[in-house]
């Protein structure tokens, strides 16, 4: 494979994944509005298109057409840079996620993954940790006390929970013995649901910690203090309007999808079939190639539904409760999990 071919294939994959990701973000918003509507005993959006299915597209058009206001007192370069950092980091970290088994056609590189990096997990964590700047700079450069408070809360929260998040993944990495996402998934594929890290690997404590930390990392309810409307009128993006606001919005939902992808890869067996070979493998080669994709997407979908369910159910934490929970409960628990997993691995 020449360099030119490699670049062309990569560009194609990047284009497809970006488009699918953006559509996924748009429809995650719709999913949330619909599900939360049902939880609160109302219909949710149902006017635009059948069952309100065109709502996200209309929303997108609306944000494009709104007037773009830049307040006078802002620190301009950073004010403009912040939404780009936020959305950019979200879209970059999907690049190392394997969506399906390494299938290739016509001598192409593996189709269902943009880039197979040896330290894929660390790349995701690194890019996520850069994403904090988007929020922090947005709040600071807006020159608004609500924005600044929201950004301070948010960056403190992100830095604190990143620790628990990273530590909760160590158990999985210890079991797998690699940081390569594809290899981690392949090791969970042998016996279907029984060899998933969450069940067969006894990593359910780690999964719980990851879940909590992930809710906090993505600024989602019950940890959505950075944009607590009743206190901060909107948090770090108070001063943003039009498409710049939409970029923060998209970054948030994109992060939800990313977190769902990582949970699926590390704990829920990635693209592998939960029933293993119980029903036999399909004969059609096309179905054989697309089944992993189906499993991956449905697992991520379930994770997103869980997200929305939690949002519709739980009230918001107080700030000190949030910090206490993160540092005094989640982090020691994560360290205990690492110790227990290592002991078990050494004993075996």
């Amino acid at each position: 494979m020449t360099i030119l071919q490699f670049i062309l294939w990569s560009m194609l994959k990047v284009a497809v994944v970006t488009v699918v990701m953006l559509l996924g973000i748009a429809y995650t918003v719709l999913l949330e509005r619909k599900l939360v509507g049902r939880i609160q005993n109302r219909w949710g959006p149902n006017r635009v298109g059948p069952f309100g299915l065109l709502q996200p597209l209309v929303d997108g058009a609306k944000s494009f057409l709104k007037e773009d206001i830049i307040p006078t007192g802002v620190y301009r370069p950073l004010y403009l840079l912040a939404p780009i950092i936020a959305l950019g980091c979200t879209l970059i970290s999907i690049a190392v996620v394997p969506f399906g088994a390494p299938v290739s056609v016509w001598g192409s590189p593996p189709l269902f993954q943009i880039s197979d990096v040896n330290v894929g997990l660390l790349v995701i964590l690194g890019v996520t940790s850069i994403g904090v700047y988007g929020i922090a700079l947005a709040g600071w450069s807006s020159n608004n006390k609500y924005s600044l408070l929201g950004a301070l809360r948010s960056s403190a929260q992100l830095v604190s929970y990143e620790l628990a998040l990273g530590l909760s993944l160590v158990g999985v990495v210890l079991r797998a013995g690699t940081l390569n996402l594809r290899l981690i998934v392949e090791q969970q594929g042998t016996n279907g649901i029984l060899s998933w890290n969450i069940f067969g690997g006894f990593q359910f404590v780690a999964f719980f910690i990851y879940l909590m930390a992930a809710f906090a990392e993505t600024n989602r309810s019950p940890f959505d203090l950075p944009e607590a409307e009743s206190e901060l009128t909107g948090g770090y993006h108070t001063e943003y309007s039009s498409m710049k606001f939409a970029m923060f919005f998209m970054a948030e939902y994109g992060n939800m999808i990313n977190v769902g992808c990582v949970a699926t890869l590390l704990f829920l067996g990635g693209w592998t079939n939960p029933f293993a070979n119980f029903f036999g493998s399909p004969h059609n080669i096309l179905i054989q190639a697309l089944m992993p994709l189906f499993w991956f997407v449905s697992k991520v979908f379930c994770f997103l539904c869980l997200y929305v369910w939690v949002r519709g159910t739980l009230p918001r934490f107080r700030y000190d409760q949030l910090m206490n929970f993160g540092w005094r409960w989640l982090m020691p628990l994560a360290i205990l999990n690492i110790v227990a997993t290592s002991l078990w691995l050494a004993y075996r």
């Binding site: 660390l122 890019v127 301070l152 960056s155």
Partner: peptide, 26 residues
């Protein structure tokens, strides 16, 4: 050195510098 590269981003750019900007903001 891929591990070192990832650690550099996570530790320095993602944690220590966040602290710096945090202090400047505060």
């Amino acid at each position: 050195a891929e591990f070192l590269a990832a650690a550099q981003v996570i530790v320095y750019a993602g944690a220590i510098m966040v602290l710096f900007t945090f202090v400047v903001m505060l």
